[in-house]
Simulated scan of single mutants.
Amino acid sequence: MMKLAVLAALAGSASAFAPAANGRGSTSLAEKSKAVPFLPNPSNLDGYVGANGFDPLGISNYFPTDYLVESELKHGRICQLAWLGYVAVDLGARIYPLPESMQGVTSATAHDPAVAFGSLGNMFVWMAFFEMAGWIGISQMLQGSGRAPGDFGFGKQFLEGKSEAQINEMKLKEVTHCRAAMLAFAGVVTQSVLYDKGFPYF
């Protein structure tokens, strides 16, 4: 009896952290996807800027679409900054003098010296802090607060006085740049390692 009570408590606590349903329909069998015309339209994506019905694996049937959009925007924004930082380091940009152990490193070779120096441990602490703070907004969004995916209150002045069509155009530009940045960062890292040369890495 005690074992059943413990299992029930564990199951209940686990379900508290499960993503909430997004309240939309699932995959529509009649309508076809715009992006992949031979597949059904994933109707969970309807109404999201830049979606175009692209979900060949049906991921939006298992996770809230707001959560997926939040994830895409977050990773895209990080990759935009990461591409710029990766290239800037290889072009010689420095914010402050580097310690002797970090002299002459490139973006591709900086990992081990940075671990030895301790700067990556420092970075981990800051990243953990930002992730915990960001999860508060995500958790509230998944519970129906009305918060838009990726909205942390920054840059909203650019949307003031604009029509809904103009706002959607800005959102489309952002998600397009986010997707391009994710591909670009993967490409720049791969090319810099394969060719072992500085920018432009060939």
Score class of each variant (00 low, 15 high):
residue 4 L to D: 13
residue 6 V to E: 00
residue 8 A to Q: 00
residue 10 L to G: 00
residue 11 A to F: 02
residue 15 S to E: 15
residue 18 A to E: 06
residue 21 A to Y: 00
residue 21 A to R: 00
residue 30 A to W: 15
residue 31 E to L: 15
residue 32 K to D: 04
residue 33 S to Q: 04
residue 37 P to I: 03
residue 40 P to F: 07
residue 42 P to H: 03
residue 42 P to A: 07
residue 45 L to G: 03
residue 46 D to Q: 06
residue 46 D to A: 13
residue 46 D to V: 06
residue 52 N to M: 14
residue 54 F to R: 00
residue 56 P to K: 03
residue 57 L to R: 06
residue 58 G to E: 01
residue 58 G to T: 02
residue 61 N to P: 04
residue 64 P to E: 06
residue 68 L to Y: 12
residue 73 L to P: 06
residue 74 K to E: 13
residue 75 H to W: 11
residue 76 G to C: 09
residue 77 R to M: 11
residue 78 I to F: 12
residue 81 L to I: 15
residue 84 L to C: 10
residue 86 Y to S: 11
residue 88 A to Y: 00
residue 90 D to T: 04
residue 91 L to W: 09
residue 91 L to S: 04
residue 91 L to Y: 07
residue 95 I to W: 12
residue 96 Y to S: 14
residue 102 M to F: 01
residue 103 Q to C: 05
residue 105 V to M: 14
residue 108 A to G: 01
residue 112 D to H: 11
residue 113 P to V: 03
residue 119 S to L: 08
residue 120 L to D: 13
residue 120 L to E: 09
residue 120 L to R: 15
residue 124 F to E: 08
residue 125 V to I: 06
residue 126 W to R: 13
residue 137 G to S: 15
residue 138 I to L: 03
residue 139 S to A: 06
residue 139 S to F: 10
residue 140 Q to A: 07
residue 140 Q to S: 03
residue 143 Q to D: 12
residue 143 Q to V: 10
residue 144 G to S: 00
residue 144 G to D: 04
residue 146 G to F: 09
residue 148 A to V: 08
residue 148 A to Y: 10
residue 155 G to A: 06
residue 162 K to T: 04
residue 163 S to C: 05
residue 163 S to Y: 10
residue 164 E to H: 13
residue 164 E to Y: 10
residue 172 L to I: 04
residue 183 L to R: 15
residue 185 F to Y: 10
residue 187 G to S: 05
residue 187 G to L: 12
residue 188 V to A: 15
residue 194 L to Y: 14
residue 195 Y to N: 15
residue 197 K to G: 01
residue 199 F to H: 07
residue 200 P to H: 12
residue 201 Y to N: 08
residue 202 F to Q: 12
residue 202 F to E: 01
